[in-house]
Write a protein that binds this DNA or RNA. Sequence first.
DNA 1: TCTGATCGCGCG
DNA 2: AAAGCGCGCGATCAGA
Length: 560
Amino acid sequence: MYVLLSAPDEAPTGALALTPLDAQGNPAGPARTVTPANLAAVVRELETKNPRWVWQRTGDFYPALLSAGVSVERCHDLTLCRNILANSSFTAHTDYAKNTQAEPMEEPLDERPSLMSNPLQDSLFAEPVAAKGPPASALASQLRAQLAALRQATEPGRLALLLAAESAGSLIAVEMQHAGLPWRTDLHEAILQEHLGPRPQGLNRPEKMEALAAELRLALNAPSLNPDSPQELMRALHRAGIEAKTTRQWELVNIKHPAIEPLLAYKKLSRLHSANGWSWLDTWVADGRFRPEYVVGGVVSGRWASRGGGALQIPKQIRGAAHADDGFKLIVADAAQLEPRVLIALAQDTKMAEAARDKDLYAGIAAQGFGGERAKAKVALLGAIYGSTTGESGRLMPQLTRTYPHAVGFVEDAARAGERGDTLTTRLGRSTPPPSDGYLRTQQTTNEAEQRRADSFARSRGRFTRNFVVQGSAADWAACWLAELRRRLRALAEEVRGPRAELVFFLHDEVMVHCPEPLVEQVSALVEDAAAAAGELLFGKVPVAFPVTTAVVDSYDKAK
DNA sequence: TCTGATCGCGCG
DNA sequence: AAAGCGCGCGATCAGA
């Protein structure tokens, strides 16, 4: 059932312990110890019995296993699952949650950084590592406590699904880092050359940036201006009679002055150069692959975060450099209007579900309540999900509320509950953290001046919780989508000889598969099957679909 | 000279 | 000063 991989209970010899456990986490046979050098072979052998691997963190062992050519079907990541179970409203009544909250250090899971540290070097040359961290008995006891909490949960089915999906995500994150996003340095350099000019020597500005800086200094009559300094820039703008409160693009763009055009152009190039220029390439791309670290559970809502190279912010400008190998394609799939569709399912809004029958949800809503104006429908709906009160979307709210009282009522209730300090929970059971110190400190006040701050904190938490339920439930869906897709891709690889289709990128509601050309049709179908499966896992049979838009391309810029 | 905060902007 | 949600990162700025 489970096999726990950890340090042994006996003196730390550098050996690793493999401990078989039953469905409740109790010992189910003799433990065995292996040396780090033998680990991969032993895991490969045991994997034929399809156990669920248990470890403190997937990142402790899995990179080395992958480097040794061994992958596993499923696991239970104790750290990620602990974070969910300790906070979930589905388990709030259990001893596990109470103890973990009151005594977070009672059963310490080692908080030290993963044994794998430097992503770029280590993922290529990962060596089997000796386990530090808690010994087998401590981790087995942690697993038992988690499984007990799960059995007592108010929604054990949903929560079990979340833990499985989160753990599958931890495998996928390491696998994607291992595989890397195919990245053509030559294409990237061509893009840089086109926009910035040749690579500059040392720390000099690229040619085209320097030219724009000169033009800007002339237009502002500020010969020594450093446009990278917001303070200097602000002073120079004011001297030139430009009344700007900030130096942000969206504010500058409305100003009519000969300096604005070169300034905005400079800012654009500056961003490209500093965020994704030549030094980015040097730092993050090696052997034709971009290998960021994905941080599962890195966002409270359950979205992933990343470390290294700004992996989740690859600008459209350079996506042409993400390019399939010869004989491969990139399959880029995007869940169309995921968050609004999740809201429909959560709120059971049948009227909006009708609008969502076509693939273009916003067009459907526009037809029902906005006189066919799609842009208005989109702004209104996103405003409802984000908690907008001002501007166009604020003005459109009454109209949206009249047409869809259920959906709007759902997010309004989430906002009101958050303002009161309540806990909100996603479909599968991930809950909001407790209110911030600032919120708690100010809510008791009777002082009139403090009341404004208190209200502001309350409204801020309301906007957060309003969005949390939708964004987080969308993350639940995406985690299931990804896990279902991974399972299908592994099954396909069993069936078909030759190179495999691999997940290489994931961005909240979008996945990318690096796919051998002969498999493109099959894999595209798997992506859609997985999306349909995710919808049913979360919501059962509901009248709202979660369509995916799939593009088969050579390079990422050709998708969408 | 170093460190942490802030600004600004990229993505969903 | 507040800001429609969630992030990461590089450059600058402020303070020790």
